[in-house]
Simulated scan of single mutants.
Amino acid sequence: MQASYTHCTVLLNEAVEALHIQPDGHYIDATFGRGGHARLILSRLSPLGRLTVFDKDPQAIEVAQALASADARVAVRHEGFKALAELPAASADGILMDLGVSSPQLDDPTRGFSFRHDGPLDMRMDPTRGMSVAEWLADANIAQMAEVIREYGEERFAPQIAKAIDRRRQERGPVRTTAELAEIVAGAVKTREPGKDPATRTFQALRIFINAELEELQQALSASLRVLRPGGWLVVISFHSLEDRITKQFMAQHAKAAYDRRAPFAAPRPTLLEQVRRVMPSEAEVAANPRARSAVMRVACRTSAPVEGRP
């Protein structure tokens, strides 16, 4: 029997309000998770409205399929949100992306996402596909490990951690569990911010890398410009600086006219996004759900005609 893990949806009301729900519209929850945002969106839709949900996680898909079996307005896709590019142009009135890892994934030791619970070192959003972190660490060289931990975890001790992992492999064999990796990192990281576990940045880096999260975010953001109808809303919730930086730069880039320097007298490319703004969790939400403290929500409205081209 599958264990039950609770999930408290971050910025629930703020995100759905930012979508400016039209009752007969089509909305996309690009990261279904356990369906907190999706259920609130459905409560705002008429019988003619539609909701398409995406997720890589098989456990999340089970929840989504149960919802779809009870509500014909819901369509489920067991895919990452880069598959937004497969949807028809100008077919959505709003897109929501709630990035990162969910509480059930963190709290389930068998998924290997957290250094707080010992379990297999996996970290795949979809454990039926691709390579686990343990498999990657078994073969990666010191330079590769250091680059991933530095670039995706913003970890200044990345070379020391990579060397410590390599020493462990030579002395005792591959790193196979979350507790083993956390112990190695703790021995290599000599100082850390008060209240922050030494393994935090390394676990973040390996999770982002093994799931190609930043690359997928970039692809999904680009696809959103084509899929959103004029006047449709894009809402993105990030939980660390790398995701938020990509989202912020993407929105800023498309919220201003672009000039072709090779053709200085040509008309500028029109702005594709407007009304860009940032929303943070309230003090009350952070007090009730500490995992909300790092959340940043960015919102933008699609302008002009949809981007042409094939999916």
Rank of each mutant, 00 (worst) to 15 (best):
A68I: 01
Y27I: 04
Q144M: 13
I184A: 04
A3T: 07
A85M: 02
I208Y: 11
N211S: 10
D57T: 06
F209T: 00
P127H: 13
R226M: 02
R278C: 09
C301K: 15
A162W: 02
D139W: 15
S238C: 02
G130L: 07
L12I: 12
R226V: 00
E213H: 12
K248L: 03
D71S: 06
V236Q: 03
C8F: 12
G100C: 01
T303C: 10
R169F: 01
G100E: 04
G187L: 12
A267R: 14
L84F: 07
G153Y: 09
H20K: 03
A287K: 15
A92W: 10
V185I: 14
G25V: 07
M131F: 07
P104L: 11
E151A: 13
L19G: 03
A30R: 07
S304G: 10
V53F: 04
A179C: 10
V63A: 15
S294C: 00
R169A: 01
S43L: 07
A60Y: 12
D55P: 05
D197V: 04
E283S: 10
T31S: 09
I95Y: 11
R298D: 00
R278A: 10
W136L: 02
H78N: 06
G195C: 04
D107L: 04
R291V: 04
D93W: 11
R50V: 03
D126F: 09
S304L: 10
S294T: 05
A263H: 15
D244K: 10
S43D: 14
G112N: 02
Q2S: 14
K196S: 07
L45Y: 14
A140S: 03
V189F: 14
L96S: 03
A158I: 04
R229Q: 15
I210V: 15
S282F: 01
F209R: 08
M251V: 05
L12K: 15
G49P: 06
A258C: 00
E147A: 13
R167C: 09
V101R: 09
G100T: 01
V299W: 12
L206P: 01
E213G: 09
P23C: 02
D98V: 06
P281K: 15
A83V: 03
L67Y: 11
I165E: 00
E193I: 05
I210Y: 11
E243V: 06
